[in-house]
Design a protein around this nucleic acid. Structure first.
Length: 745
DNA sequence: AGCACGCCGACT
DNA sequence: GTCGGCGTGCTC
């Protein structure tokens, strides 16, 4: 008797372990086993889901265990997709098993549980919903035993073919006994079909036809479609001012890909905020669209995933995680508003979907379109370097003008609302118009700024502005609890006058209620939109004219248009410049540009009043003058001088401890390590924030970020690999962000 | 991530 | 004399 050599497979487990593992496949399962499927494996004294990566030829067979089961009938991923996930795992230094788990819809995995004794049970694993369908069978009809309802049912099934139980019930009322009887007689047959829970089940769709493109749109479209015809990786930046008709270009480019028999993947920042975009896609293309976003239930998400996997979907629209959608034959990947920070996943696997779109596009040989009115500095640099093609839409499709922005220097003005803005608000409300007040700070808090040199009081440890607590007469750092008594003089220039600045939305609301007691005022920020649907409720109150003034944070710059708004006020436009982030000027420029774009959307150009203590910063000036080119030029100059991206590579490394008690110890180890690395590798190391004590308690899990900067990708990689191979490495050092993968192409 | 093994303080 | 803290190491 010859013993067949057992099949050996390589698997990844969804645990923070870098290694992969080998298992034996018993012959009864060898047929069913394939790369891209999940298997149930014994692991330690547990059992868990593992992902089959490959069938391997040789391995040390001595201490291998056998897999227990194969969990999928069909492969979850293709070879190409597995390659993509391997790339991600290596690039973000994240265990492959965890990458694969995050790429899967929630709830699909079998949970790990104890396996002592025999009553241990498998939990988890999303159920597939089944529905019963009936068709006419070929049994012979008995005389007179069929009731009228049964006869009618049979007749209907013979005429109409296969029908679902739900449909039959809708037509014939309660008919289960009759169907059962017919089935016994062999006159009907029953089958089980999978149902896909459709989140749009109840939405009627209106047809939408392609619009005539203007000259710029046409040029962009021609370039994209000819790149589609070439069937190779070609990345573009679609740089179009607000209202320039980027969406129409996407739609027609996607239509072209569909004509080629290829599919389209569309990434949007926050899909719940862009219902009109989804609506337009559905109106244009009808069915065959899958929508993936956070509002879906686990079941719906799983169903959409399966529809995509089975090729029932031609277009996938979704937020960042949609980059993992199991769509095959992709012709085009669109990343709308590519500059948006929400494309970054901020925990666990810290990927940037915008970057991954380029990587996937390269792996699959597709066209990639990054669209934005205010692209990332990095993106424009890539254009400059010839790594991205540039498509420009410099004019608004409707021909409306960008608004004229008036600046109000706040030097010497005590209140949060300047007299000019106050006056304009009074007039606007009196004329029955609406106004938006924008500021990028929540709450009531203030900080101290020198009236002479405009330097804010900052924390010596964390370089964030200190929050001024009026009652305590203290300035406090909300990161590290550093506190100083409110000083009488400016620490940088010695001037005597320090003023309170940086009022939040709450404070502005409070002040406006006092200034305009008659006006109906709304506030929209993350504090007022936490409830489900509250976001839409606020927006509709603005839309139907039952509010006069909307105060809000960045949130109001996204999603809905406000056609009734004739006045936009910007409070402390420079506040976001004080963030401890090398991109603070980039963010400021982007946000202000968006706010201004919002102002000019209606028929009238709209009026913008911009309040700032010191509006001379180039980010503010360029936004005011709608001078994108000027901003990018100056910003690149600044980046070059300071050695920030795109001229250097950055990684943020998180060190996490498991409990509050060992935090102190861990952070000491960490600091020592950091100093070693700094000296040994001559790397610049910037600490973004010292262990923020209040955060330990908040999160139960300590996390501290350290920004590592290297002058080449290899330096950075070596640095982190060295660190990881250190004898006693701090746990979980595997978070890399902000490395632009375009540079790899 | 779990979970076992292993070594030092206050308790039935 | 034990119970139990978390530090360290391993999982095919």
């Amino acid at each position: 008797m010859t013993l067949l050599p057992s099949q050996i497979i390589e698997v990844a487990v969804p645990l923070p372990i870098e290694r992969t593992f080998h298992y034996l496949v018993p012959s009864r399962l060898s047929e069913a086993t394939a790369p891209g499927k999940r298997v149930l494996v014994p692991f330690g004294n547990r059992r868990l889901t593992a992902y089959v990566l490959a069938i391997v030829e040789t391995a040390d067979t001595t201490k291998l265990k056998e897999i227990l089961d194969v969990l999928d009938d069909e492969e979850l991923w293709t070879k190409k997709e597995l390659e993509f996930f391997r790339w991600i795992a290596s690039y973000y230094m994240h265990p492959l098993g965890e990458v694969l788990r995050t790429a899967l819809p929630a709830g699909i995995n079998l949970q790990t549980r104890k396996s002592q004794g025999n009553e241990d049970e498998l939990s988890g694993g999303r159920s597939v919903r089944h529905e019963t369908w009936f068709r006419a069978g070929n049994g012979t009809e008995p005389q007179r035993t069929l009731g009228t309802k049964a006869a009618a049912l049979l007749e209907f099934l013979r005429q109409d073919g296969v029908n679902s139980a739900a449909e039959l019930r809708r037509r014939f009322g309660q008919c289960t006994p009759q169907l059962k009887r017919l089935e016994e007689l062999g006159l009907v047959e029953r089958e089980q079909r999978e149902v896909y829970r459709d989140p749009f089940r109840n939405e009627a769709s209106v047809r939408d036809i392609p619009r005539v493109l203007n000259q710029h749109q046409q040029t962009a479209f021609v370039q994209i479609s000819s790149s589609l015809d070439r069937h190779e990786f070609s990345p573009f930046l679609l740089h179009g001012v607000t209202g320039s008709g980027k969406t129409e270009v996407y739609l027609q480019a996607i239509a072209h890909a569909l004509e080629q028999g290829r599919n389209a993947l569309v990434l949007v920042p926050e899909i719940s905020l862009t219902p009109q975009l989804v609506y337009r896609f559905r109106a244009r293309f009808g069915g065959g669209i899958a929508i993936l976003h956070s509002g879906l239930s686990d079941g719906e998400r799983y169903d959409e995933w399966r529809r995509i996997r089975r090729g029932l979907v031609r277009i996938v629209i979704g937020a960042r995680s949609a980059i993992f959608a199991p769509l095959e034959q992709i012709g085009i990947i669109v990343v709308d508003e590519e500059h948006e920070a929400s494309f970054k996943q901020a925990d666990n696997l810290r990927y940037n979907a915008r970057d991954l779109a380029l990587v996937r596009g390269q792996l699959e040989g597709t066209t990639v379109v990054l669209g934005s009115a205010t692209p990332l500095v990095t993106t424009l640099y890539a254009v400059e370097q010839g790594r991205l093609g540039l498509l420009e839409l410099p004019t608004r499709a409707g021909g409306s003008r960008l608004p004229v922005v008036e600046t109000i220097a706040m030097q010497g003005i005590k209140s949060t609302i300047s007299p000019q803005l106050h006056q304009s608000l009074v007039e606007t409300v009196a004329e029955g118009g609406q106004a938006i007040i924008f500021l990028n700070r929540r709450g009531f808090a203030t900080f101290l700024v020198c009236g002479e040199c405009s330097q804010p009081l900052t924390c010596p440890n964390c370089s964030v502005t200190l929050t001024y607590h009026r009652q305590r007469r203290q300035s406090v750092c909300h990161y590290c609890d550093y506190a100083v008594p409110a000083p009488g003089t400016c620490p940088s220039c010695g001037a005597l006058e320090l003023k309170e600045l940086g009022a939040g939305t709450e404070r502005v609301e409070h002040d406006l209620v006092e200034l305009l007691p008659q006006a109906r005022i709304l506030r929209m920020d993350s504090d007022t939109t936490s409830g489900k649907g509250s976001h839409n409720r606020l927006l509709s109150r603005m839309a139907d004219g039952s509010a006069d003034i909307l105060i809000g944070t960045q949130m109001i710059t996204k999603g809905h248009d406000f056609p009734g708004v004739t006045l936009v006020g910007v409070i402390s436009a420079e506040a976001s410049l004080n963030m401890p982030d090398f991109r603070s000027s980039e963010r400021t420029f982007q946000v202000l540009s968006q706010v201004f774009g919002r102002a000019g959307r209606g028929d009238a150009p709209g009026r913008v009043l911009l309040q700032a203590l010191n509006p001379t910063h180039y980010a503010i000036q360029c936004a005011i003058n709608h001078d994108g080119a000027g901003f990018y030029q100056q910003e690149l100059e600044f980046r070059r001088e300071t050695g920030y991206p795109p001229f250097a590579f950055l990684a943020a490394i998180g060190i996490s401890g498991t409990s509050e008690q060992n935090v102190g110890q861990r952070s000491e180890v960490t600091t020592a390590l950091l100093l070693q690395l700094k000296n040994k590798l001559k790397l610049r190391i910037e600490i973004l924030g010292p262990a923020p004590a209040p955060l330990y308690r908040l999160r139960g899990r300590f996390r501290r970020q350290i920004l590592l900067k290297a002058h080449s990708r290899n330096d950075l990689r070596r640095l982190i690999t060295d660190w990881l191979s250190h004898r006693t490495p701090p746990a979980a050092i595997r978070e890399m962000i902000d490395i632009d993968p375009v540079d790899m192409m």
